[in-house]
Design a protein around this nucleic acid. Sequence first.
DNA 1: GTTTTAATTGAACGATTGGTCAAATATAAC
DNA 2: GTTATATTTGACCAATCGTTCAATTAAAAC
Lengths: 124, 124
Amino acid sequence: MGKKKTFDSNEVLLQVGQLFITNGYNGTSIGDIVEETGLLRGSLYATFGSKQGMFTSALKLSLERDDERLKWGLLIVAMLEVTPRNHQVFEIVQNWYRHQSSTNVATNIGTELLKHSGILGGEK
Amino acid sequence: MGKKKTFDSNEVLLQVGQLFITNGYNGTSIGDIVEETGLLRGSLYATFGSKQGMFTSALKLSLERDDERLKWGLLIVAMLEVTPRNHQVFEIVQNWYRHQSSTNVATNIGTELLKHSGILGGEK
DNA sequence: GTTTTAATTGAACGATTGGTCAAATATAAC
DNA sequence: GTTATATTTGACCAATCGTTCAATTAAAAC
């Protein structure tokens, strides 16, 4: 039924996630995403609906995956730029936090942000 | 020697700092700043030079002041959105970090970010 | 009061933003 | 092969972005 998708959504979301981490949410333009993924705006919007949709999908995927850098990176961007204005993303992060038994979530976030800023070395 | 300034730069910088904390760096427009401060674009640019200048000045001021919320808030925004692309801001944050003896800077940053996101309660 | 200097005003600029959509294309169903 | 459906294409849009600057206003210097 109809044309087949010419790309893998999850692969694209991983690229998109990296962009959001590197540039922040508001610092990443659709043009950046088009350039990075090689897809055209229409395809992106047909698949993810909106920029917020792209972020939300990338965040969800990162929480299912085993890439700590991706996960913490997107969580930080979410908390600083998205959560205060997007209830769906707020709930995703809140739900993740609830199931997080670890006592040092704050420390992990802080450490990851220090690494992101370049203040702290990127190696373990 | 010429007309007198009709506003206090530091007062304006405190307002600007709050905006950057609330909306992030890229999420704050000059229009937002004009609206919040009541000043016009020309006055802002004559005083601070650029948007980056406004942020840099607000950050510097926050580090001299006794407002923990303002300080951590701007440091977080700086680390996520500005530091990777602005060497001057990077040096300011790096210098602040160097003189920071505390062992739990990371925890403070993480905690403050969790509060900002709404995940953690805002009271102490 | 004239001149000089500093600050304010706000219209205007080109660039970029997130988002749309009619046309073209490709696959499945019959 | 025809029809129905899903996807891609990319030109286009209004809105907003950060920034500039000539004109105006106000104070200091003389």
